[in-house]
Nucleic acid binder design. Sequence first.
RNA 1: GCUCGGGUGGCGAAACCGGUAGACGCGAGGGACUUAAAAUCCCUUGGGCCAAAGCCCAUGCGGGUUCGAUCCCCGCCCCGAGCACCA
Length: 778
Amino acid sequence: MSNAVNPNPTEESAGYDPSQVELKWQESWRDLATNTVDVANAPDPFYALMMFPYPSAEGLHVGNLFAFVGNDIYGRFQRLQGHNVFEPLGYDAFGIHSENYALKVQKHPMDLIPQNIANFRRQLERAGLMVDWSHSLSTTDPEYYKWTQWVFLQLLKQGLAYKKQAAVNWCPSCKTVLANEQVIGGACERCDTPVEQRFLSQWFFRISDYAQRLLGNLDTLDWSETTKTAQRNWIGRSEGAELSFVAKRNGEQHSIRVFTTRPDTVFGATYLVLAPEHPLVPSLTGALYKSAVDQYVARSSKQDVVSRKSNTEKTGVFTGAYAINPANGEEIPIWISDYVLMEYGTGAIMAVPGHDERDFEFAKVFGLPIVRVVCAEGEDPSAPLESAFTENERGVIVNSAQFDGMTVATAKREITSMLQAKNAGKSFVNYRLHDWCISRQRYWGPPIPIIYCDEHGAVPVPEKDLPVLLPHVEDFKPDDSGVSPLARHEDWYRVPCPTCGKMARRETDVSDTFLDSAWYFLRYPSVGIDEVPFDSSLTQKWLPVDSYIGGNEHAVLHLLYSRFITMVLHDMGFLTFEEPFTRFRAHGLIIRNGAKMSKSRGNVVVPDHYIEKWGADAFRTYLMFLGPFEEGGDFRDASISGVKRFLDRLWASVNTVVDATNANGSGDPEVMRKLHQTIRKVGEDIPKLSYNTAVAAMMEYMNSLRRGERKPVRAEVESLVQLVSPFAPHIAEELWLRLGHQESVFNSRWPKFDEALAAEEKIDLVIQVNGKTRGKVS
RNA sequence: GCUCGGGUGGCGAAACCGGUAGACGCGAGGGACUUAAAAUCCCUUGGGCCAAAGCCCAUGCGGGUUCGAUCCCCGCCCCGAGCACCA
């Protein structure tokens, strides 16, 4: 006999060989369509959704798998509860990511993406997910993006899509426009290049019209609190007042509107500041000041956003003009400074240096008057301010005529109504949320379905002509002309006007990837239906999504955009609900050596060889055992052996039962009690996504099952197999079969626990003296 | 700066509603089996004092409330995430 023998005996019942078991069951699930749902006829639908991945060339990494497995466990558990669980999975394959990669390796994304998808599919199947592959999709399929274009046309129809010439964030490295939310600290979120300002004509969605609804509905959603907070911050509601200051110049009156959260301090407004881009700047600037103002405006428009926003010292110029403070009739100077942003509020502020740090700093630099209008109790109202007094909780109004002595809260209200009576102000709620710029001057996305005609302007492509196919062009490299590479392809670009038939031009921009992902969950149940984006009865049946799991990196953008699109489609009568995700939980991040996994850091861990070595079941269970699902953790392979040992013991215990001639006894009372406690514990933990403690509980049970020399009986192991099945589906399926069941364990029902049995039988009475434990009586 | 998380053994972590802190796993130490190793199985494992029974200390730091605090309150320190010249 040769020494190079296979360490694993091949005899069926002898040893546990994960890969043999797993491949066998994966094939069986495929053949028997175990994971496929009859979407039209499911009596008890449950939609368990996971955020779809971007199919990168590197393949699925353990961070992705961690999230998918977490969702899979939840889905399988719901199935064992008797629901018809729909767990679809597709690919978010458009976008700058794929395009940049394609450019780098000099291949066409239309060739690359299918390869990547095939690789992902292989990895996902190997991991044993309960995915219904008959309802998969890719955002790059024309039969999908046809409807993405349709969504755009619906927003256009509602007046919620509009085009404007706008200062946009331009990434000089990616050579494209970025949405505000893709600019992180003034730099491109993808390549960290400082972002510049450019003026381009862009398509926007009026998401800011929905700010209040998007904010208000959050209170009704069962979502991770962290995610809701992030959305609230992003929407950024500020309550205050909009005030008007009148300025005169060359006999003309100009009303300058400002937004403030502190109308109570208006008596302390000693000057106004306009953003350099403010439209009134030219008409307010006096002849003497023109060259200084022009210079300043030119300088700030050239400056990139990063350095402008991180300017430490206040800079600015005087316009030569004055305005009247509507509260006290005083003339106050009008300045220009880049610390006032055109994008927020009205692009102009009233400066109250006594009670705003930035205004204080500015006033110090330019020697402008600082007036105190709020005092802490007992303070001298005439004492000069050393710094801005911004605390308003215990402030009292001073130097403000009849409002003196009021609290800040009262003065806010009273002063606003006084100004309103003078027609110089009103209460106003301002939001930080900006309209969503969806134009991208790139190739790899769905073309925006618009045709420009000299006579008829921007004409929507008729719905019957959708999709506007993205042509397969060899030359898709962006340049810095500011127009999409598609503009260089005349045969695609020139097209007759749908209205008059004269030659016209296509819109050459493609839409933002976030639009692709803002409605994909509506499509899954209807995959394969050509006539509509989502069939109304299927949608009625499956949506809103019962459980959505995804990363918190999408807490703001993707989730906000999806909610917005859903609301719009609801308002148009396409949907009966206005919130797409009933329940959302953010999973934690799997990090490696203290850092997020990324190719550039070189710390990406691919699951393939772990699955090969330990098996998908052990790897899945290990990932869940690593730490709390909603917190994630550092990836170490250290304790995977413990999980594997647990599965080995499970295998051995169940096979002992299978091999025994008479294992049908009633079970050891102590063990049975523990079993029922475990059934209860695991059943409580899974819905809470407390997977690590569920695994611990099963391990604990395994320990008590094996105590002593005794052999387990059927009653002691049968439901354990069911408890394990969401985590380790293959081994569970195999053991279930060996226990003599004809049907899949996933067609069985989650075991019930016996209340009385599961209750603690012994009560430990702890004796404490002066709060210190002094012993116990059982 | 503001808003959320979080800080517990050598490590990952558990602890319901204020009631035996450290379940479960890894690692480490010891033992059984073995010619030997691997695998498997058993025991020990927060720190300290003690021959032992037992006692003391311990959940980032300092106070407080309570018969009793990892948990509640006040004041700090550190780590992570988000927002940020947002008026």
